[in-house]
Design a protein around this nucleic acid. Structure first.
Lengths: 113, 113
DNA sequence: TTCATAGTTCATGAACTATAAAAGTAAATT
DNA sequence: AATTTACTTTTATAGTTCATGAACTATGAA
């Protein structure tokens, strides 16, 4: 991950509503959540949420697909892992392997979608 | 780590110069670096660096002690570990242990200063 | 005590970010 | 086709952050 990109990812997460939205998606797992559901849960007006989602999208932290009328968002774990790797780079006497985490969530249920 | 605090830590790191300064300190290890040394390496005017260091200090990411005329800064690894733990919370089907990293750097050499 | 070095604080303009109303687009329902 | 639902874009205002010069404080040396 290039330095500038790490800053972008950090900036994206460095906001109360955006961090909350991202965590909601992380906890929702591969199933994801519709924009409207996030809006309901966080009690954010639609335009405000969209602008925050756009920041997360631009940072590569959130991906989405249209599903009929709604848009389903999912956390991009690879991106988070890149950030964690970057943050822990050179932190333990240059032995990255000892502290770089990798998150690879499994679907809660194979049945869904 | 409380949510608000995680945002503060993320905000602190979400700036080019601050991330660079923090990484410099992470790489310097327990030995740390004097403010002037950081200023030289990053080519930042003193007041600019001080204000960034204050943000990192307030976020608990950097601690410092005065050593004669200079002030020696060190990265606070515990804080970083807290952030990593927070970010990976609930990311792998609520099994935190599988992806929460812990960074515990060793001194490079006991001989130097 | 005077001087030099190392940092910090303060003030301020420029640049950026947040919020949300209004208007727009896309898909399903009637 | 008209309407409703779900979301995005545009735009305006309000607020925050950033960079840096000038002034200040702390320590050590002469």
């Amino acid at each position: 991950m290039k330095h500038i990109t790490a800053v972008e990812v950090l900036k994206a997460l460095a906001h109360d509503s955006r961090l909350a939205a991202y965590r909601l998606l992380v906890q929702a797992g591969p199933e994801g959540l519709a924009v409207g559901e996030i809006s309901d849960r966080l009690k954010l007006p639609a335009p405000t949420l969209t602008s925050h989602l756009n920041v997360l999208r631009h940072a590569g932290l959130v991906r989405d697909v249209r599903e009929g009328r709604s848009i389903r968002c999912r956390a991009d774990y690879a991106r988070m892992n890149m950030l964690l790797g970057f943050l822990t780079e050179n932190c333990c006497g240059n032995d990255t392997s000892s502290c770089a985490p990798v998150c690879t969530p499994q679907p809660k249920q194979r049945t869904s979608r």
